[in-house]
């Protein structure tokens, strides 16, 4: 069944759970991995991903299918991820920790596998990116989303999404070579 058919089935109240779990199984991995690239820690990504799907369950009755389900789903994931990062920053500021992780855990601090210097620099560079640029870069580079879809997800224009991507590439390049 297509996403549209599953959503219609859900909205009609016809085997809601069955339709929902099919959507979840179909889309859970790309959404989870996008979130994990943003926050790195598996536990954090798990919390955010669960929140995303619970929100999808609660809001799916009102989804008008004006955009593709995956676009809407990633939009929910984008908002939840940014909210999580902002909340984490506030908590860190309150507890006066000295992390400069911008919402990410300290790169490689708990990783037992020896990582190359460049990888460590990359993770720090990614952590330095503003969240929106980071999200746009991940969607474009790793998931090959087109700019129209990215713009819909992040609530920006196509030009804005392109600019975010190029700025992200530029900053990462600078940070890796200068750090």
């Amino acid at each position: 069944m297509t996403d549209q058919a599953l959503i219609t089935q859900f909205q009609n109240g016809d085997s809601k759970e069955g339709a929902f779990t099919q959507l979840l199984k179909r889309h859970q991995e790309p959404v989870f991995f996008q979130i994990k690239k943003m926050v790195i820690e598996h536990a954090d990504a798990d919390d955010i991903a669960q929140a995303v799907w619970i929100k999808v369950w609660n809001k799916l009755d009102g989804f008008k299918q004006e955009s593709a389900f995956s676009t809407w789903l990633f939009r929910v994931a984008y908002n939840e991820t940014l909210n999580f990062i902002a909340q984490k920053k506030r908590l860190q500021a309150q507890t006066k920790q000295n992390h400069q992780d911008h919402g990410l855990s300290h790169p490689s601090s708990h990783n037992t596998i020896k990582e190359s210097d460049i990888q460590i620099k990359l993770e720090r560079a990614i952590a330095e990116l503003p969240e929106k640029q980071r999200f746009v870069f991940m969607l474009r580079y790793f998931d090959a989303f087109d700019y129209e879809k990215i713009a819909s997800i992040t609530g920006t224009t196509v030009g804005g999404a392109k600019s975010n991507y190029h700025q992200a590439v530029k900053k990462m390049t600078e940070l890796i070579h200068n750090a």
């Binding site: 990582e115 190359s116 460049i118 990888q119 990359l122 580079y141 991507y165 590439v169």
Partner: peptide
Amino acid sequence: GLNDNMENESISKELEAALNSFKTKSN
């Protein structure tokens, strides 16, 4: 990189390799 558009010509091979490792770790 994974996206073969011309825009990724600005991504150095070094960065590209690091990004691939990052993806493997994240997944």
